[in-house]
Amino acid sequence: MLELRLVQGSLLKKVLESIKDLVNDANFDCSATGFSLQAMDSSHVALVSLLLRSEGFEHYRCDKNFSMGMNLGNMSKMLKCAGNDDIITIKGDDGGDTITFMFESPSQDKIADFEMKLMDIDSEHLGIPEAEYHAIVRMPSAEFARICKDLSSIGDTVIISVTKEGVKFSTKGDIGTANIVCRQNTTVDKPEEATIIEMQEPVSLTFALRYMNSFTKASPLSNTVTISLSSELPVVVEYKIAEMGYIRYYLAPKIED
């Protein structure tokens, strides 16, 4: 049996908004560690990994490990019915064919429950090894989202290059080219406004902007984003979810034919 209660229900709404366009159906894995998900987009180019640790919930009970297959579009429809200030409780059973979402208003004067049908999803859990990255860039998530949005109006791909000068985002398209360089900047009023570049060696990789833009849907979950780059490895774009866990996106670089 799974029973979890999240006082900050808006967080779960934001999580769904950040994955539903990338993945249609996914298994949510329930364990004593937390509520997690690993899923690929249909073209197997991008992978999303979500962890919401049990300690982050006001109440968390999971008697045994099991998975619940959900259509994320349908789950998003249900969670959109929760108010931003609502407390969300999720209840499910191992082997059950439905999951229940309960929404409580902060003043407890409105309580709603929605039951959603589950689905059988055959998915393989991939082991993602810990890796050393050539460069790790931490920057404000809103800045990264702005860059991806701006560049996608000019080109389809972004070249992310990290050198000792900074991190450069470049694109080219029919109308011209664009280069945006962000330098390390730690002299800011708030730590979340800093751009921090840890570089072991220069790296330059090309990615589809369509996916990067999809990842930036997670920006409301975190003020900062961490981009880990290594040649020969998928990029990792990570948004930490305060005190609860993370959402990580892995994307294969574009390679020459």
């Binding site: 690929m40 073209s43 197997h44 180019v45 991008a46 992978l47 393989e124 991939l126 082991g127 993602i128 090894p129 090309t206 589809a208 998928p234 892995y250 294969a252 670089p253 574009k254 390679i255 020459e256 034919d257």
Partner: peptide, 14 residues
């Protein structure tokens, strides 16, 4: 004319 790797194959082979 560029290709992208299949992440499932990538992680299964690493």
């Amino acid at each position: 004319n560029k290709h992208q790797a299949d992440l499932e194959k990538f992680y299964n082979s690493h």
